[in-house]
Design a protein around this nucleic acid. Structure first.
Length: 594
RNA sequence: GGGGGUGUAGCUCAGUUGGUUAGAGCGAUCGCCUGUCACGCGAUAGGUCGAGGGUUCGAGUCCCUUCACUCCCGCCA
């Protein structure tokens, strides 16, 4: 036994009754009966009830002690009578009668209570994160995170992957997110960048012949935060494999995800084999390349139907003529839903910046007709065609919107979520994984109208590489894939392009000449010229995996020391100003915007 | 960069149509209480109503500006 404890606070059981023990921990809660005082002593492992009465000379000192003070108690383990057993804690059959105690760490008045299920403002939680982290729920989330990471690590080891560290100070690269820059003292005027991901390094590891690599890798991107996106930094399970095709990567990741999610959650997996959905299909059917497959609603394109003469919905017909599309969502058996249900969705759509959502319900008296504000614009025959096209039946309702494709995808995707939520169609006890595959290599930049890489410039284009038609770059698909779970993008990956000549060609399509590629990606392109194996990989986001497993909607709930939305660490006061000398040494001067 | 929400005691919140001295629970302090486990009871302290300006006889409440936190859009190969 060391001087602080003979047992932890979750260790004592009936068999220990009669023993003299030392416990150390935080005062979780006091219940003061005047002549009898209960103290719940807490540590990482659990809680033990300690008790002292007024006959003990320490009584009045303990009575005055602040919650969250760290104390050591010495006492005798006592059996609890049947009526006083507490089934909610594992040590509930016993209690410790305090003989004496020492204060190991005193505590000022608390800015926030630790023993409480209440919600607190992020500001106070982040400022006093060390207190926040003592609280049960988040304490357990962080422990879960640790266990998940160590499980993943051991699974990867078992699969023959080797773990390597890659540099944190590296070079800035074009494409992708904003870099965090670090000025170099020894190289005035030059900057390192923190890696947005160890992308190039892991490919170099393959070129170096290590075959299978993984790392729980910190990634840094200077972009704005979201609930599921930490500002600044996050962690990926970065992995890369040599001599593989897409399917080989899927096999590894699918097994790893299934094992991890089965081990750490009671929720069921919707699919044992993850469905593969092409990017094009995903955008049509779900309006998004990160569909939540728990949601049964599917989007249908009914643009063509609006060219019929027996539809007199002139606003949509006019928009369709000028290139807009019409897409719809069918809700099953909603004919008896109140008017407010439909109007709310229309109103909601307007709030999202769309022109609203039209709707009608298909009813049949003698003949099929459409009930609802715009129902009168549709003939019986047109309705039957819509029903055929969308699988809608009598009693179902159809919500539809008209817009240019991209905006339409956005609003129908959000409507799919909104309607499913309103109708309570999503089973919360399921994880629905899927692969999104066949991403296009390039896309058109909306603002500049230029061709740019749609995902990763290092991806391998699909098909026979000698027959690629570079004149139609938007038609080139890549061996590029995402894994999605419950509408959250966990990861993207690709089979890489390991052929320098092909790389130059693809970069030239995106507007980079050979010199620029050589300069920006010198390490990579040079390495690929000295015998590179075909290789590919992926990088699932650790924070998001833990978030799903912990059933949390916010990534800060599974991050030990997160920054706030403005990328500030309120506890450590980062970022902070630096003194003139530091700047001078780095050859920097500040020119702040007013 | 844009839009929404929130901001009242240390913490979580209530505060009506603009109307007297801004309330409650938890926490703190003091007192009572020997079987609680969210112990109970009584008392006390604690407020720049985020900040600034305006309207008004009168503003926590209405208007304008601004700040902070948060959610979303943009952004995130």
């Amino acid at each position: 036994m060391n001087k602080y404890r003979s047992h932890n606070c979750n260790e004592l059981r009936k068999k220990d009754v009669g023993g003299i023990v030392h416990l150390s921990g935080w005062i979780n809660k006091k219940r003061d009966h005047g002549n009898l005082l209960f103290i719940d002593l807490r540590d990482n492992y659990g809680v033990t009830q300690c008790i002292i009465d007024k006959d003990n000379s320490n009584f009045s000192k303990l009575e005055k002690i602040q919650l969250e003070t760290v104390i050591r108690v010495k006492g005798k383990v006592l059996d609890r009578s049947d009526e006083t057993i507490n089934k909610d804690i594992q040590t509930g059959e016993i209690e410790v009668v305090i003989e004496n105690f020492d204060i190991l760490g005193s505590c000022k008045e608390l800015p926030m209570p630790v023993f409480s299920d209440q919600e607190y403002s992020e500001e106070i939680r982040l400022k006093y994160r060390f207190l926040d982290l003592r609280r049960k729920k988040i304490h357990e989330n962080i422990i879960l995170r640790s266990k998940v990471i160590s499980f993943i690590r051991s699974e990867m080891n078992k699969l023959g992957f080797l773990e390597f560290q890659t540099p944190i100070l590296t070079s800035s690269s074009p494409e992708g997110a904003r870099d965090f820059l670090v000025p170099s003292r020894l190289n005035p005027g030059k900057f390192y960048a923190l890696p947005q991901a160890p992308q190039q390094f892991k490919q170099l590891i393959m070129v170096s012949g290590f075959d299978k690599y993984f790392q729980i890798a910190p990634c840094f991107r200077d972009e704005d935060a979201r609930a599921d996106r930490s500002p600044g930094e996050f962690y990926q399970l970065d992995l890369e494999m040599s001599f593989v095709e897409q399917e080989n990567v899927f096999e590894v990741v699918e097994k790893l995800m299934a094992n991890t999610f089965k081990k750490f959650s009671k929720k069921k997996l919707m699919f044992d084999e993850f469905p593969k959905i092409s990017y094009e299909d995903a955008l049509l059917k779900y309006g998004s390349d990160k569909p939540d497959l728990r949601n049964p609603l599917i989007i249908n394109d009914i643009t063509e139907i609006f060219t019929r003469d027996d539809i007199s919905f002139e606003i949509f017909k006019k928009l369709v003529k000028s290139g807009s599309k019409v897409r719809c969502i069918v809700t099953k058996n909603t004919k008896d839903k109140p008017r407010s249900f439909f109007d709310n969705i229309d109103k909601w759509a307007k709030e999202q910046g769309a022109s609203g959502m039209a709707y009608f319900t298909i009813v049949k008296d003698k003949e099929i007709s459409a009930k609802g504000p715009v129902g009168k614009f549709f003939s019986k025959e047109a309705l039957i065609e819509i029903m055929n096209k969308t699988n809608a039946k009598e009693g179902d309702s159809i919500f539809f919107a008209c817009n240019k494709q991209k905006e339409l995808e956005k609003i129908t995707s959000m409507a799919r979520d909104k309607i499913a939520k309103d109708l309570d169609l999503i089973d919360q006890n399921i994880f629905a994984f899927c692969w999104i595959i066949d991403y296009p290599m390039f896309e058109k930049d909306e603002q500049t109208n230029k061709i740019k890489f749609s995902h990763n410039p290092f991806s391998m284009p699909q098909g026979d590489i000698n027959k690629i038609n570079f004149d139609k770059p938007l038609d080139i698909l890549a061996y590029q894939y995402d894994i999605v779970c419950n509408g959250i993008e966990l990861s993207s990956g690709a089979i890489r392009n390991h052929i320098p000549e092909l790389m130059y060609k693809l970069f030239s399509v995106a507007g980079y000449d050979k010199e620029q590629v050589d300069e920006k990606f010198s390490g990579m392109i040079n390495a690929l010229s000295y015998g590179a194996p075909p290789h590919g990989g992926i990088a699932p986001g650790i924070d998001r995996i833990v978030m799903l497993l912990a059933n949390e909607k916010n990534i800060r709930e599974v991050t030990m020391f997160p920054m706030n939305q403005n990328a500030q660490d309120l506890m450590m006061n980062a970022p902070s100003e630096v003194n003139e000398n530091q700047l001078k040494e780095l050859n920097l001067s500040l020119k702040l915007k007013k």
